[in-house]
Design a protein around this nucleic acid. Structure first.
Lengths: 124, 124
DNA sequence: ATCATTAATGCAACTAATTTGCATTAATAA
DNA sequence: TTATTAATGCAAATTAGTTGCATTAATGAT
């Protein structure tokens, strides 16, 4: 729970707002040298709990954090994450996924990760 | 590349064959106490290269390995992985995913992870 | 079968990502 | 403006996975 508004929290939040792509913890740590990496991790976890950001693990195992735009109160992730194999940028794409699940299975959460080439890189 | 057929490789392969769910490295290590964890990891990597198994990273960041049934030569994963939040079992589900990607994006690889309740657990 | 070659193994040590403990610092409410 | 206690920084621990290297053992040739 975010109880006190500190400089480090403000700085992390600003980075999320100014950055339209998913961010990895080590990127945050590198861009915020005034703060300890432990602090960054703790802020990420508190933001996650508060629903300010959400987390997704890439198919290569690395964690990315995204600011919540349309996540709102219900934290069911109907969107997916796209990583461009050319420019390496990661985007949160707000499109519905259509999934066929077997009979008598039910869904609580989905995590779809797509690797490919983004629009910008396809134009070159 | 799998050049020599050793006891450890046989043991790992047998576990994959007898086990219809996804397996985590630490489960393999625990079930094969006669072999070193490094050996297990090296076998997993060689099996991956050989296309005998495939790997998927769960939404909580843990790696699961699955024996390839219908992966065949083309290693494009059109199926997905389902983790039951009740029994914790992980299954590789051989169903097509329907994904809408934005204009001018192209797909190289997909990794869809679904958490929910499996058929067996829904019956109780 | 037995020997030579070299792939595969086991151990120790390393790396990277993340977490925990604890003493100190600083945001907030009184 | 002070007291409370959340948040921080540092060091150390933890977990997953990798690397180096000497030793062992699978395999192909004799």
């Amino acid at each position: 729970m975010l109880k006190r508004n500190t400089k480090s929290k403000q700085a992390v939040l600003e980075l999320f707002i100014s950055h339209q792509y998913g961010i990895k913890p080590d990127e945050l740590i590198a861009q915020l040298p005034d703060f300890d990496k432990v602090t960054i991790y703790r802020i990420l976890n508190s933001f996650l709990e508060d629903g300010i950001i959400h987390k997704a693990v890439s198919d290569d195992g690395s964690s990315y954090y995204f600011i919540c735009k349309s996540c709102k109160e219900v934290h069911y992730h109907s969107h997916y994450h796209f990583k461009c194999s050319k420019c390496q940028k990661v985007e949160c794409i707000e499109k519905e996924i259509e999934i066929i699940i077997p009979q008598n299975y039910s869904i609580e959460n989905t995590n779809l990760w797509i690797t490919g080439i983004c629009e910008k890189c396809n134009k070159h």
